[in-house]
Amino acid sequence: MDIFLQQLINGLVSGSIYAIVALGYTLVYGILRLINFAHGEIVMLGAMIALSVIGLLTDSGLPGLLIVSLGLLCAIPCCMLIGYLIERIAYRPLRHAPSLTPLITAIGVSIVLQNLAMMIWGKEFISFPPLIDVQYFSISEATINSVQIFIVIVSTLMMTGLNYLVNKTKLGNAMRATAQNAEVAGLMGVNANTIISLTFVIGSALAAVAGMMVTMNYNVAHYDMGFMLGLKAFTAAVLGGIGNLRGAMFGGILLGIIESMGAGYLGTLTNGMFGSNYQDVFAFFTLIGVLIFKPSGLLGKAGGERP
């Protein structure tokens, strides 16, 4: 049986999630030149908060889809608040520090959030209760289920929405101006702090939805799920050209597909020596490859970072 189509579908689904998370990295990087390593943890918190709400409501007798939606609707504002607070408390005081300082702080924030989550939700895997009646559809030899379709559609909508916000609205114009030259944007009346807070809040809202999607896709959540996902999404952002929105979307989907194709064909190619459990390796080979051959990313400008 040919697995190509199936791997393509799987790649598209996980790639859509990477893309949404990668947008969070790229938005913040675009404005602050900061790699917010804690972003993956926001995804995890989104999943955990949503699951907690869902857990509380499971026996309420409400329809399953409504319970899931309520979980998501609680996770989004919570994550927005957490994202806002992280910037306010951890990063803002370091705004003018050498760039290594906020980077190390970001790693610190990530560790703190992970441990906090472990204390609140424990070390066990938390499973997504079977609230939704999942439908399966077959396309020639491959299958796709309703959750996967939902993930792809919601991601596409969010990407389109964000693209519109950033490229077509007055607020987006101010965000881009601030990213290019915060001092001059300030002279036009833009309060850079407001824009920066907003960037974190938007990125965190996307992360909350991504967290929900990951849990729905794999049926579990875990306190350290944000780590690997964060690294991959960061890889996707670098792959597309960090700081570039379309790059993050493109990089996310491409990475999802590379990974899934790699996992699908690795066994055949190596005569069974390596199995699909080597899937994660592909993401990081891709990252290394990009860093060596096109450090500015596929859609990034040559020369990389602007002065």
Binding site: N181, E183, V184, A185, V190
Partner: peptide
């Protein structure tokens, strides 16, 4: 101090941000 990646018109509209 122009915003080089933004379009000419977007630059002008930034001037009218307030």
């Amino acid at each position: 101090g122009i915003f080089s990646d933004s379009s000419v018109e977007e630059n002008l509209l930034m001037g009218a941000y307030i």
